[in-house]
């Protein structure tokens, strides 16, 4: 799995057309639900895709750039959901406050887990993150003060006071701009991360550990830093998911979300900026529009994950590249 994505030449050359293309894509993206008919199904499906894509980007940072597997991101996903639900239902706090609290809790949880596993081997890190999610499930299931086995129902609509006006996301159509904005912010963050010192160092640790060591990089500290910044991304997705469903419960820990995150990242190919977004869109489209029932959907999702990694480790993008090369 040591294939570095080669930058396509057209991407780096001219900055102005690139900015224009990006703006056009953003505009098209924003009006996409209306272009697809403007029905509530279009809005809710696209909102779900945006939320799930953000969820996947948390795992993407760790898996693509660090090359390690976090199996505990359902924990951050649930932290976001539970924070939004508890603070808004019990204390009537607005969306900004619950979002800030989500970020704070996710950073704290990731810092704790990362620090505890700092001196262990890589797969112990995966084991412990997975175990952490299972344990958190047990706690969420048994602790009635934060919802218990029934969860929390009746979360009020998302309220985001913006100076004089207050944004209120009561319906799926109202939530779409928030989900879209969160997705754009996440994409901008990932794009920035890819060029940052931490991002390039993480990639170096993954691709050439010997070089990294000779430059005095401690791979464990890099792992901790990347893990910690990845947590609030998935957490914020869970935060918005709570408002979208108006309910949170222990089902946020289901392995579905974990398998979904990993599949969306590897399906298109790792280290591709829009890869997880396209992967999420394809998978959600299958589950929502071409569903074969819960058990068959599980078989499909799990098989996609296993088959892609076994046969096309560079994902559909790598397959496409190989295919288009062989023609010339």
């Amino acid at each position: 799995m040591t294939v570095i994505e080669s930058q396509t030449p057209s991407r780096t050359n001219s900055p102005l057309p690139r900015a224009v293309i990006t703006l056009v894509l953003i505009a098209v993206g924003f009006f996409l639900p209306r272009l697809l008919g403007g029905t509530s199904v279009a809005y809710s499906t696209l909102t779900t895709i945006a939320i799930f894509a953000v969820m996947c980007y948390g795992v993407d940072i760790v898996l693509s750039y660090l090359g390690e597997v976090s199996l505990g991101h359902t924990l951050f996903w649930a932290i976001g959901g539970y924070t939004a639900a508890n603070l808004s239902v019990k204390y009537g706090l607005d969306g900004w406050t619950t979002a800030l609290a989500t970020i704070a809790f996710c950073l704290a949880a990731a810092l704790f887990l990362g620090a505890v596993t700092l001196r262990t081997r890589e797969f112990v890190f995966s084991l412990v993150t997975y175990a952490a999610a299972v344990v958190a499930y047990e706690v969420a299931f048994n602790w009635d003060a934060i919802g218990g086995s029934d969860g929390i129902v009746g979360i009020a609509a998302l309220k985001l006071p913006l100076g004089v006006a207050t944004f209120s996301g009561a319906s799926q159509e109202d939530l779409w701009p928030v989900a879209f904005a969160l997705l754009l912010l996440t994409l901008a963050f990932i794009a920035r991360f890819r060029r940052s010192r931490l991002g390039t160092t993480a990639l170096m640790v993954q691709m050439n550990p010997a070089l990294a060591a000779s430059l005095g990089v401690d791979p464990r500290k890099v792992r901790l830093a990347v893990f910690v910044i990845s947590a609030p991304i998935t957490g914020l997705a869970g935060w918005l998911y709570a408002y979208q469903r108006a309910y949170v419960g222990p089902d946020m820990f289901e392995s579905y979300f974990l398998v979904m995150m990993l599949t969306a990242v590897v399906l298109i190919g790792r280290r591709i900026l829009v890869g997880p977004l396209i992967g999420t869109a394809l998978l959600i489209a299958q589950q929502n529009l071409l569903s074969l029932g819960g058990d068959w959907n599980k078989i499909i999702l799990g098989s996609v994950l296993a088959i892609v990694l076994i046969f096309w480790p560079t994902g559909l993008a790598g397959l496409f590249r190989r295919f288009s090369k062989s023609k010339f």
């Binding site: 199996l71 398998v259 078989i299 994950l305 296993a306 076994i310």
Partner: peptide, 23 residues
């Protein structure tokens, strides 16, 4: 010895087994 991919593949296969057993 690709442990990273092995972890994910086995997780995916486990999910397939879960769906298949439920059927």
């Amino acid at each position: 010895q690709n442990l990273t991919s092995l972890m994910i593949v086995t997780l995916g296969l486990g999910y397939v087994l879960q769906g298949g057993s439920a059927l």
